[in-house]
Simulated scan of single mutants.
Amino acid sequence: MWQDFGDYILSEAGDDPVKIAEIGVGKFDKISEILSEKKNITVLKTDIHPKDSTVIKDDVTNPNLELYKDVDIIYSIRPPSELQPHLINLAEKINSQLIIKPLTNEDLNTGRVKMKLKNYKKASFYILR
């Protein structure tokens, strides 16, 4: 499933230079590793509690918008429901595509914005273009 999720993001990225941000990386960075293998992709990893020096400290509830300059795609894996509206706000502010991979069977908390359920091979997630 994780490879399928990574493959979907790679298909969205294409072959042109693209900047992708993972919000709330935590300790699971398999997807960012998959994305980093492509030379045209720059991956920005953020978390409020960075696990190491590869992750930039940022709070999505009050994001440093300068960090997300030129980000084309934002994704977040299992973000808590209280953070989901902040992900929407960030994506709208920077005009970025948003992909949320919630816990299985979890309802999204995106308020006024409806995200589209996407099934890609064995992965299910929500997208906002």
Rank of each mutant, 00 (worst) to 15 (best):
I74V: 11
K38F: 06
E106T: 08
P63C: 11
D58G: 04
I20H: 07
P102K: 01
D70Q: 09
D47E: 10
K69T: 15
K51E: 12
S53R: 15
D107P: 03
K38S: 14
L117W: 00
N89P: 09
G26Q: 04
S53D: 15
I20K: 07
P85L: 13
P79Y: 02
M115R: 02
Y75C: 08
L35V: 10
K121S: 07
D29G: 14
I74M: 08
I48S: 12
V18E: 03
S36L: 11
I74R: 08
V43C: 06
N89I: 11
Y75L: 04
S81V: 08
L117I: 06
K38V: 00
R112M: 10
E92S: 13
T104V: 05
I23S: 04
I100N: 01
P102L: 01
A91K: 05
P80V: 03
P80C: 01
K45R: 15
N109G: 02
P17M: 00
L103Y: 05
I41Y: 12
I73G: 04
S32M: 08
E106A: 15
D29M: 12
V113M: 10
N62Y: 03
R112F: 11
N95W: 00
E66L: 13
I77E: 01
N64Y: 02
I100H: 02
Q84E: 14
K116D: 03
E22A: 04
V25G: 04
L35I: 11
S81I: 11
T104N: 00
